[in-house]
């Protein structure tokens, strides 16, 4: 098995290692970089729990070889919060709208929807549903995940989220 030197920036910190050619990126992130927020639910590109952003694009990291990401800038859930340490609008949205139960799909959901609302700041419900359709959640039934994304998109547009989504925690 050939090995290769790679340097990959994870949430702004470069991580260098000599890795086997076949090492999956998700394992590099979790084991070499020790960032275990990125999960692995299938390692066959079905569930999306492993979604990270490579140079800003959401990618299922179980389906990328580490060597393919050499030199790339990766963002994982651990790097999602704002620079000042406050939570990203999506993190706030998921907890305000109860967009998670067990939390296993959540990091992938967050990374997919972060890219989604960056590209489309005011998505329709259908656009959100299609946008996250590569990410499976077994617990929530998605209704509140959709609302979480709507919450965050509203907040980032400067709109009061409680005027956009109706969830028990926001009811006055």
């Amino acid at each position: 098995m050939s090995t290769h030197n790679v340097t990959i920036s994870i949430n702004g910190t470069p991580v260098s290692a000599n890795v086997p050619a076949r090492l999956l990126l998700v394992h590099f992130i979790r084991e070499n970089a020790g960032q275990t927020g990125t999960h692995c639910g299938c390692d066959t590109t079905s569930c999306g729990a492993c979604t990270v952003q490579i140079n800003g694009t959401p990618v299922k990291s179980c389906t990328v070889l580490t060597v393919q990401a050499d030199g790339a800038e990766l963002t994982t859930v651990e790097g999602l919060a704002n620079k000042d340490g406050s939570l990203h609008a999506l993190q706030e949205g998921f907890t305000s709208c109860h967009g998670l139960h067990c939390g296993f799909c959540t990091p992938g959901m967050l990374m997919t929807s972060a890219a989604l609302i960056k590209e489309n700041p005011d998505p329709t419900e259908d656009e959100i549903r299609w946008g996250i359709s590569g990410n499976l959640c077994r617990c929530t039934g998605y209704n509140n995940i959709v609302k979480s994304v709507q919450y965050a998109a509203a907040k980032l547009r400067g709109v009061d989220p409680s005027t956009v989504v109706d969830v028990p925690s926001l009811r006055k």
Binding site: G37, L87, T95, H98, G103, R171
Partner: peptide
């Protein structure tokens, strides 16, 4: 309808 206490770690990848 308080927000869930466990969410704090889950939304930050610290489960």
């Amino acid at each position: 309808s308080m927000k869930r206490k466990e969410d704090v770690r889950f939304i930050q990848g610290k489960g």
